[in-house]
Amino acid sequence: MVIPVHDVNPVRRTPWVTYALIAANFLVFLSTPGIADSVSGASHLSQLCRLQAFLDHYAVVPRELIHHQLPRTVPTGAVGVGAHGAGCVVAPPGYHKSPALSVFTAMFVHGSWLHLLGNMLFLYIFGNNIEDRMGHLRFLVFYVVCGYAAGYGFALLNESSGAPLIGASGAIAGVLGAYLVLYPTARVWVLVPFLVFLPLRLPAWLVLGFWFVLQAVYSSGEGVSEAGTVAYAAHVVGFLAGMVLALPLKPGTPPPPEPRRLLFGRQARHTW
Rank of each mutant, 00 (worst) to 15 (best):
E64R: 13
V2N: 11
L21R: 03
W205F: 03
A186M: 13
R13G: 00
S219G: 02
F142S: 04
T32G: 05
L206W: 08
F142H: 08
F239S: 06
T76M: 02
W211G: 04
L70R: 07
N158K: 10
S43H: 10
P92E: 04
G242L: 03
V145Y: 11
V89T: 02
Y58W: 13
L48M: 14
A227F: 00
V141E: 09
I66A: 09
N25Q: 01
F264Y: 14
V145L: 15
G147N: 06
V74T: 09
F264D: 02
V236M: 03
W16V: 03
T32D: 08
Y19Q: 10
W211Q: 07
L198A: 07
V145Q: 07
G153I: 10
F210A: 15
L200V: 07
A268P: 00
H68V: 09
Q267M: 12
F122A: 04
L30Y: 06
P71G: 09
T32W: 01
A171Y: 10
G85L: 08
L30C: 06
I125D: 02
G87I: 02
F54W: 00
V213C: 05
I35H: 12
V109Y: 09
R12N: 14
P164M: 07
E222K: 13
L116K: 03
M243C: 14
H235D: 15
C146A: 11
P164A: 08
V190C: 13
L206V: 14
P184R: 09
E64P: 09
H115N: 07
Y183N: 13
V90S: 01
L21A: 09
E226A: 11
C88R: 02
F139D: 06
V39K: 12
A86L: 08
P251K: 14
W211D: 01
F197G: 06
V192Y: 15
W113E: 09
V39P: 00
G153N: 12
V11K: 09
V217P: 05
L262Y: 12
F212H: 03
L202I: 01
V224Q: 04
I130T: 07
G135V: 03
L165E: 07
V90Q: 02
E258C: 05
W189K: 13
L245C: 03
